[in-house]
Nucleic acid binder design. Sequence first.
DNA 1: CGCGGTTATGTACGATCGTACGCATGAGAG
DNA 2: CTCTCATGCGTACGATCGTACATAACCGCG
Lengths: 179, 179
Amino acid sequence: MRRHDPGRRDRIVEVTLELIAEVGVAGLSHRGIARRADVPLGSMTYHFDGMDDLLRTAFTRFAERFSASYAAHFAEVGAREEAVSAIVALIRELSADAGMRDNIVAYELYTLAARDPAYREITGRWMAVSRSELERWFAGDVARQLDALIEGFALHGALDVAPLEIGVVESAVRRLVGA
Amino acid sequence: MRRHDPGRRDRIVEVTLELIAEVGVAGLSHRGIARRADVPLGSMTYHFDGMDDLLRTAFTRFAERFSASYAAHFAEVGAREEAVSAIVALIRELSADAGMRDNIVAYELYTLAARDPAYREITGRWMAVSRSELERWFAGDVARQLDALIEGFALHGALDVAPLEIGVVESAVRRLVGA
DNA sequence: CGCGGTTATGTACGATCGTACGCATGAGAG
DNA sequence: CTCTCATGCGTACGATCGTACATAACCGCG
C-alpha cells in the first residue's frame, strides 16, 4: 500500500485528459482511469465528488493549458503583419493531424458546454483569452471575427475530407484585417 | 405483443436523435432508446448491429436533414446581396437558443468524427453540401471561407458567454465577399 | 513510546449494461 | 383450414459500472 504519493490528484487529472482523447467522455470509467493512473479505485471518489467533478477539473486544466499555448504562440509577435502570419500558422497547426488530439478533447468539451452551462463557463473564459490575445493587434470587433474564423477553419480543416489550402486561409485573414 | 409495426426502425432512429440531444452519446443505452421508442429491447439488436451501427444511421439522417434545411434556407435567395443577408440570418439562427438542440447533436457528431474516420465521411459530405450551396453565388475559395466563418460564429455564439453582435457578423461576411 | 484522529484504501453491493439465443408468432403457400 | 418457416421478441447471462462504508495505515502530539 502506497501512502506517500504527492501529485496523485494531478496524475488522475492528467490521465483523464489522455483517456478522453483516446476513448472519449463516453468511454470513461473510474476504474479505467484508476488503472491507467496506477491509483486505487477508492482514490477516485476520495479526491473527486464523482465523475462530473473530475470532468470539470480536467477540462478546466485543459482550457488553461490551451490558453497558455495560445499566448505562447503569439508571444514573440511584434508587428501587425507578423500577427497575420502567426494566425495563418496557427490554423495550419490546429487542422493538422498532429493537432488532432487537442481537437478531440476540445470538441468533447464543446459537446458538454452545449448542454451544460457549467461547462460553458470554461469555454467562455477560454474564448475570452484568445480574443484578448488578438486584441493586442486588432480592434475588438475584428478580433472577434478573427477568432471565429480561426475556429471555423480549424474545425473544417480537421473534419472535412477536402484538404485545407493555406492560400485560402491567408486571403480570408487578410480580408478580415483589411489589408 | 405488437407484430405489425411498420416504421419501427425509423422510430428508433428518431428517438436516438432525441436522446442524443438530451443526454448525449455518453448517456445512451439500448434500453433507454427502446423504452422511449416503445419498442422491445430485442428489436434494437435485431434492426441494428450494435450501438455503432445505430449511431452512424442516426447521424447520417441528421446530416441529411440538416443539409436539406440548409438548402431550404437559401432556396429563394436571388441576387448576391440577398445571399449575404441570408448568411447573416443563418448565423443568428444557429447561435440562438432555439437552435441549440441541433448544435448539441452536431457537436456530438464532430466529437465522433474527430476520432473516427467513419464519421468523418458524414461530416465531409455535410460540409461539401453547404459549400456547394454557397458556390451558387460565390467563387469556390470564398465559399470555403464563408463556410468556415459561419461555423466559427455559430460555435462561438453558442458557447461563448459574451453575446454575439449581429453587426460584427455582417461586417465580417461583407469583408469576405469583397463588398 | 503509545495513542487518537486524519487520511486513504480495499471490498462488496445493487444497478445497469450489451448481447446472444431459444422460442413464440403469424403470414402465406398449398 | 393447416402447415411451415422466416421474422421478431422475451429473457437470461456475464461483465462492468458508480458508490458507500468499514477498516487499515500513517502522522503528530502528549
